[in-house]
Write a protein that binds this DNA or RNA. Structure first.
Length: 576
RNA sequence: GCGCCCGUAGCUCAGCUGGAUAGAGCAACGGACUUCUAAUCCGUAGGCCGUAGGUUCGAAUCCUACCGGGCGUACCA
């Protein structure tokens, strides 16, 4: 059996061979594009870019390539001006697509690497003084999708998170707890732990506005923490535990998982010793007040502080320490940081610092940045409590989905209904985020996003459920291996051609670290399927062969939708 | 000031490393359920791809300048 990837490679080799024999060289690249709808072909290759290389007109090149010997599975290679259009034999197209999907199932389009690259993907990395909000959702959703895509491409991926569990923001929550909530726990307050601590943090902000002394207390608390004061450390541990327990629930709903969780409180010393090391080597320098700096003006940045005058560490110091620690323990080939675009400068500085300290792997660090998430009123401000809380949002979306389900005729018990509503509600958020390119800001319209119309996760899930319903009614899907050639309708061919492109969609999305490509592909696939669905019958198709062939087509589309959705972290439901 | 990102239909966005006639969705209007899930489908309408130059056989895509918006430029994280 030949896979789609092997078949495309084979075609490329043949085209190159023809170029070598006729023009004396290989083309720079052979890109398999999509012919316009009016042309009946599976691939289009443009010959413009070869024109300069071979000193012939694109049309001449197209004609020459089209004359090549073709394997028996290629139906025709037809030059059309500067393009060649390649059409596979319909039977081969069907067999290749169907057999591969049947063989690979939920791993359709995945690849194996002989020596898998080890990739650390850092994402989420929250502060432990408040619950996760919409901005974190974007981070987690992107992070999960990137992890999944890289894994599908055969990489050895380590999802990592670092909890920012120390610093003045934590102390603020602790001060407020002692002053206003002493003796209470998340249980007595009837709240999730992260929400409980978040409440103390908000309270601090409110109270400290009219009372400067609170800020003083927070600073004193930070000093006590650094000094290792037992009572302070005790409270700190307790509150951190509340928060992380709350996070675990949120992560479970979001589908975020980590293989490596580290704590800033364990790591920040490492960065400091690296800084001192750098001073010794003459890479960093001290100012009179004792602070440590390095100069990035030669690469268009500024001077950056790396340790404070009082010897305490900064954000950059911590990330330096974490990076070196991870490299030492895991020897990654790449490190991908999923962090908002407001940190672009920070990561430039971080990577530059690592490079100057002599770590060659610094060149393999990538900051995958993404845009802001705005509310209609403006940027989210966590201290003002004007945020879309992650848990609340997931609840709201789930409830919305439930309401819509109530109106439907679906006969299912309450537990199933809840679970499906959860998949739809959370899938809607995820798809809403993933379908736009990461760099774009998202203007989040809470009401609008609750709609399930158009290019949405629910649309994809609905299409999947619709197909599954047909397959369930059909019972056993007969094996049509020996009866290819029955899918002759336009919609059927278009669907097959779309399926043909799934493996490349995955590898492109993974290579660009861009899940939105996959999100878009799935929407297009679902759209094509729904077009087919309204125009043609499956179960009572005209003849048993067509019925069987269509069932197999349906099964393949459903499986591809499921594969894609799951890579995006969205559950494909059987019914809805 | 400097750096990075964004600017495509009324709104939200696609448009792959330049390539066959700029595409969707939403909103608006008009159609399609005795028929495999109408959370669907079909149709109509809507564009000087921010502006001006440049490179090219060919530009929404690459380069330059400008305009508009965002983010950053902390001994905050």
């Amino acid at each position: 059996m030949m896979t789609i990837q092997q078949m495309e490679k084979e075609l490329r080799v043949l085209i190159c061979a023809q170029c070598r024999s006729q023009f004396g060289g290989d083309p720079d690249s052979v890109v398999f594009g999509m012919p316009p709808e009016t042309i009946d072909a599976d691939y289009a290759v443009e010959c413009f870019s070869m024109s300069k290389l071979f000193r012939k007109s694109p049309a001449d090149i197209a004609r020459t390539i089209a004359n090549m010997d073709r394997p028996e599975w290629v139906d025709s290679i037809i030059p059309a001006g500067p393009y060649i259009n390649i059409k596979l034999t319909p039977a081969f197209l069907e067999r290749t697509v169907f057999d591969q999907i049947d063989a690979e199932q939920t791993r359709f389009g995945w690849q194996k690497q002989d020596t898998p690259a080890r990739v650390i993907v850092e994402y989420s990395s929250p502060n432990t003084n408040k619950p996760l909000h919409l901005g974190h959702i974007r981070n987690n959703v992107l992070g999960v999708a990137v992890v999944n895509l890289l894994r599908a491409m055969g990489n050895d991926v380590i999802p990592a998170s670092i909890l920012n569990d120390r610093g003045i923001h934590i102390c603020k929550a602790m001060v407020a707890y002692r002053k206003f909530f002493e003796g209470q726990t998340p249980e007595t307050a009837g709240m999730k732990g992260d929400h409980f601590v978040g409440m103390t943090y908000v309270r601090f902000d409110q109270e400290s506005r009219g009372d400067e002394s609170l800020m003083e207390e927070a600073r004193a608390m930070l000093r006590a923490w650094e000094a290792g004061d037992p009572a302070t450390r005790d409270l700190w541990k307790r509150m951190n535990r509340w928060v992380t327990e709350g996070f675990e629930q949120t992560y479970a709903r979001l589908g975020s998982t980590f293989e490596l969780v580290q704590f800033e409180s364990d790591m920040y010393q490492e960065g400091k010793s690296l800084a001192l090391d750098g001073v010794q080597k003459g890479i960093f320098y001290r100012r009179e007040d004792g602070s440590i700096w390095f100069d990035l003006r030669d690469i268009g940045l500024d001077e950056k502080a790396i340790v404070r005058g009082d010897g305490t560490s900064l954000y950059l110091t911590q990330d330096l320490g974490v990076a070196v620690d991870r490299a030492r323990r895991y020897h990654p080939d790449r490190v991908i940081y999923v962090v908002g675009s407001e940190q672009i400068y920070h990561f430039k500085a971080l990577f530059a610092a690592l490079g100057r300290l002599g770590f060659e792997w610094a060149a393999q660090c990538v900051h995958l940045s993404y845009g802001m998430v705005y509310l209609p009123e403006g940027k989210m401000k966590s201290r003002e409590g004007k945020v879309i809380d992650a848990d609340n949002l997931m609840d709201d979306m789930t409830r919305m989905a439930l309401d819509v389900m109530e109106e439907s005729h679906l006969q299912i018990d309450d537990a199933d209904r809840r679970s499906i509503a959860e998949a739809i509600g959370i899938g809607a958020i995820k798809y809403f985020i993933l379908k736009v390119g990461a760099l774009k800001d998202i203007h989040f319209d809470p009401r609008g996003s609750l709609s399930f119309d158009g290019s949405t996760g629910a649309y994809l899930q609905y299409t999947h459920a619709r197909i599954r319903s047909i397959l369930n009614r059909a019972g056993e899907v007969p094996d049509t291996d020996c009866i290819t050639g029955w899918l002759t309708q336009k919609e059927e061919t278009t669907l097959l051609r779309k399926l043909l492109r799934f493996p490349r969609c995955l590898s492109d999305a993974a290579a660009d670290l861009n899940p939105s490509r996959l999100a878009l592909y799935l929407w297009e696939l679902a759209k094509l399927y729904n077009g087919f669905y309204t125009n043609h019958r499956v179960l009572d198709a005209p003849g048993p062969e067509i019925r069987a062939a269509r069932l197999r087509l349906c099964r393949s589309v459903a499986m591809t939708l499921r594969c894609g959705l799951e890579l995006l972290g969205i559950r494909a439901v059987e019914r809805m």
